[in-house]
Design a protein around this nucleic acid. Sequence first.
DNA 1: TGTATTACTGACTAAACAGTCAGCAAATCT
DNA 2: AGATTTGCTGACTGTTTAGTCAGTAATACA
Lengths: 186, 186
Amino acid sequence: MDKRKRILESALKLFVEFGFHATPTSKIAKEAGIANGTLFYFFPTKDDLVIALYLDIKSQMMANAALEIENKTTLKEVLKDYYSASLNWAIKHKTKFRFIEQFTNSPYLNKIAEEEIQAHIQPIYKLLKQGIKNRVIQKLDIDMIFAMLSGHTFSINQYIITKDFSKNKQAKVIDDTFELLWKMLT
Amino acid sequence: MDKRKRILESALKLFVEFGFHATPTSKIAKEAGIANGTLFYFFPTKDDLVIALYLDIKSQMMANAALEIENKTTLKEVLKDYYSASLNWAIKHKTKFRFIEQFTNSPYLNKIAEEEIQAHIQPIYKLLKQGIKNRVIQKLDIDMIFAMLSGHTFSINQYIITKDFSKNKQAKVIDDTFELLWKMLT
DNA sequence: TGTATTACTGACTAAACAGTCAGCAAATCT
DNA sequence: AGATTTGCTGACTGTTTAGTCAGTAATACA
């Protein structure tokens, strides 16, 4: 019913399939079952729509990861929870994740303020810094550690998606790859 | 002088800056200093141009990595050479690498045959399989190992590019991160 | 119930676009 | 030198596009 939401959903679907610029606003409107002009009532320009969609999905990702991180004891447990929460979300919301990938690898990214991008990685940075302080994680440049962590997560997600694992096998892969990551960082 | 080359160079520059669809063929022609129609003399459609550019850069990457891999003794040395050759190439050819990233994270990728994509990863697969056989590398799914290897390489490249390291520091980062990767895989 | 505000419409337009084509220029062949 | 092929041109076109706007429907408010 909510037309704004319907526009975002249709845009997501079409953007991932055809790309941002190869998807006309008219097709988004049609797919959403609304009038052409309605799209511009909610989003003044097409760019506004693309960026709104990005911020919308990004905040969903953040909410998901933040939820899972509570009430754990050791750093390893916290980090593992964060890792598997991220992966499970990406697996569950393939299209949304594809969109984020596509967006962050496009010139659109420059239209987003740096702080906006940094916002959701703050908690992990804190975690990692704490780990270094406590001599659990190797004393390396924090940005380098973060790069390895996110690169690992990202590529394991790609791996899991291309294969068509059962839920159990998926969980096992997440477990195993986290142990490997942990081995590398400690 | 070679107009085909000039078109490819201009297209590369503009695609990376503005994206594929946000870059009109007319601007590419202008930037290349050639007539509008000339572009279509060499590349029947814009898609043909995009794909030709991808294949061109990809073959440059392959040639570079293949060159460096010769005459090494241990698996670790070979893999390390491959790793640093890839990273050094990416650092030296930032724009080309950005293009590959953008392309592979866009719906354009579907227009490339699967074999074409697989072609250049064959030598590494062989290397990794050999490593598993010789009990040097952990006995894990080969696709998983490859995913971790490429994810690691990719993210370390991102890391090096965002920082503005000296040549020496760059080499040190490449060395250090390879050791970490090796630690994880063995 | 009447009035004001907000949500939404779809026909429309000006600009931008990929691709065409008739023809010119330069090189290659005979 | 003349003929033929190949490289290249840029004005042109039919189509597609983002975005507008005058107006209608629905809701809220008095």
